[in-house]
Amino acid sequence: MKNKTLLLYAFAYLAFLYVPVLVLPVFSFNDSQFIAFPLSGFTTRWYAGLLADSALQHALGNSLKVGVVTALLSTLLGLTAARAVTRYRLRGTGAALGFISLPLFIPDIVLGLSLLMLLGAVGLPLSLAGVVLGHLLVCVPFALIVLIARFEGFDKNLEEASADLGEDGWMTFWRVTFPLMLPGIAASLLLTFITSFDEFLVAYFLSGTEATLPIYIWGQLRFPGRLPMVLALGAIILGASVALVVLAEYVRNLGVKKPMVGA
């Protein structure tokens, strides 16, 4: 009896999570301007419309650029910080970590607004570079959390053994640290990329005339006629996100199988 209730609950929960998401792909193939049941036939014209929309492609390009640069920079910063935190006993490590993680707890709207005022005060023009700066604030803490976890499972004697066997710091990094950190680095890159790619508020404040994809989509919502096309776009992004998450999990598991300790 109890099991049945539990099962029911589980189904209801899954439905709650996934039905809204599934609405996206379903209506993106629906041959009607209006988002309403009953469905009125299959079409791919909304997807064809995406291909013809140059403003959308420009926004997509912007988002990819910002996402890739943010992912690379925040992972690089995270990597050096995580190594410092886990390898050396430094004074003030706790405080520094706290400050780095703080943006996680500041509402994005406050973050976006403050950055907007700061850029204005310094006299810098709004641009995608500003968006990257804002996204770094949000993404570095994520990178740091993923990478510190990876470094903590990593016997520091392994790097010393490499030095002992004649390799300098740089070669030790490439022959030992990097391969062992690779799953963490990949996970950090994917996580920060996704975080940047779908970030709206900070980008909205800082992007100026260069829209990123979420800003473009937000703009399209004013035109009801374009809604099905936005759904098609949403469906594609959804598919790509799922693929990325699966990839990230796969890479992370690659790392779990190999023990990190030399003992």
Binding site: D155, N157, V261, G262, A263
Partner: peptide, 11 residues
């Protein structure tokens, strides 16, 4: 050096 933990490269 032969380390106390052996420090064999796991990869």
């Amino acid at each position: 050096m032969v380390f106390q933990s052996y420090a064999i490269f796991p990869h």
